[in-house]
Computed example of a mutant assay.
Amino acid sequence: MKPIPYGRQHITEADIQAVVETLQSDFLTQGPKVAEFEQAFARYVGAKYAVAVSNGTAALHLCAMALGVNETSRVITTPITFVASANCVRYCGGTVEFADIDPATALIDIAKVRQMVESKPKGYYSGVIPVDFAGNPVNLEQLRELADEHGLWIVEDAAHAPGGFFVDSQGKKQFCGNGRYADMAIFSFHPVKHIATSEGGMITTNDEELYKKLLLYRTHGITRDPELLQENHGGWYMEMQELGYNYRIPDMLCALGITQLARADEGMARRKQIARVYDEAFAGATGIDVLGTNPAALTADGETGHAYHLYVIQVQDRKGLYDFLREHNIFAQVHYIPAHTMPYYRGVGYKKGDFPEAEGYYEACLSLPMYPSLTDEEQQYVIEKVKAFCKA
């Protein structure tokens, strides 16, 4: 069996042709494909505005900047995430505080967030960065209620969940990144994600003021908009009005994103099909626990809003299974090492034992291959090897 990774991009001839056409056009960057991708993505998630950037980490950083995170800010996030979800706060000088997870889903535990917020005076915390881990949507309606009570902003890290949704109290699907409950949301277009642009990210929001800040900060804090200029010396004139960054994304990557987005529903359907096969294979299997779906992501008729960026199981001998699978050309992965146990965060006061649910999850978790081009034969091979090890 050829190597089977935990995730991989799926590039078609249409993708390649779109990139070639852009390479042959007048614009390689700052051209029309950027706005085209932004508009298509905003429609896809149901948001008013979208801002394309160089990667998901840049997206998080710009969100923190636009919200005014600074040395006085305290922001809550989950320890089970890629460290960028926390680092964006540190980039702006703010303090990161972690809330433990719900062990059933590995999502941030909103009850624990409430305990943290209510234990401090109003204004002590600035905001919350929930993560739709593995594609499993956080119930942002519940989190928004808490945020409104205490004056908090919300940045939804939906890097794993384009096309995912939860069901609100009115029975309506709320798609990740639609801006109904979060002030902003971010997405990643890394090759293992649903939509691959090599590198790339997106911010979505329904707030026009935040949208304008994001556009400014994305390009060095520079504007050419005549309505915003403090002076105007002529058609060449531009002004740096804020300290921004070069977080632009090239047109050729946006061209790839547009064609990838056109297949997003097809890819999502395949991911859910793969998940169902895994679910059926591991149902009742001794020694194999499947990470659960947030109940809020299930409709009354059984449809799931889980976007399945990852398919995570938990086993007692995770290291043994990881090594065994690699010996058989299956390159499963671990997501994630708890952020608070990283040397950097230990250096600011965190230690092992601070978040027992997150640490317990980490000791047992393993992400199995999950991507649309995974064949039925490859998936059955993965299932066979996982079961063989867990029965040994």
Rank of each mutant, 00 (worst) to 15 (best):
P5V: 07
G7V: 00
T12W: 04
T12P: 06
A18H: 07
V19S: 14
T22D: 07
L23V: 11
Q24W: 07
Q24A: 13
Q30E: 12
F37Q: 02
F37R: 04
A40D: 09
A42H: 05
V45P: 12
V45I: 13
A50T: 03
S54T: 13
A59R: 00
H61A: 12
A64S: 14
L67G: 11
P79S: 02
S85W: 01
V89A: 06
V89H: 01
Y91W: 14
I101Q: 04
I110W: 00
M116Q: 10
S119N: 15
K120T: 07
K120F: 01
Y124T: 09
V131C: 04
F133C: 08
A134D: 07
G135F: 02
N136V: 08
E141S: 03
Q142N: 13
L146Q: 00
L152I: 04
V155M: 09
D157A: 01
D157Y: 01
A158I: 05
A161D: 08
P162R: 01
G164P: 10
F165H: 00
F165D: 06
D168K: 03
K173H: 08
G179C: 04
M184Y: 05
F187I: 10
F187P: 03
P191V: 04
V192G: 12
I195N: 11
S198K: 13
E199A: 14
E199S: 15
G201N: 01
G201I: 07
M202L: 13
M202E: 05
N206P: 03
E209W: 10
L215A: 01
L216F: 04
Y217V: 00
T223W: 08
G235C: 11
Y237L: 08
M238P: 00
E242T: 10
Y247G: 01
I249N: 03
P250F: 02
T259M: 05
T259F: 00
L261V: 09
D265H: 13
E266S: 14
V277P: 04
Y278A: 05
D279F: 08
T299V: 02
G302M: 09
T304F: 08
Y311N: 10
Q314W: 03
V315L: 05
Q316V: 06
K319Q: 13
Y322Q: 12
F324I: 01
I337R: 15
Y345R: 09
G353M: 10
F355T: 00
Y361W: 11
E363W: 11
S367M: 10
S367Q: 13
P369E: 11
D376N: 13
Y381D: 09
E384W: 07
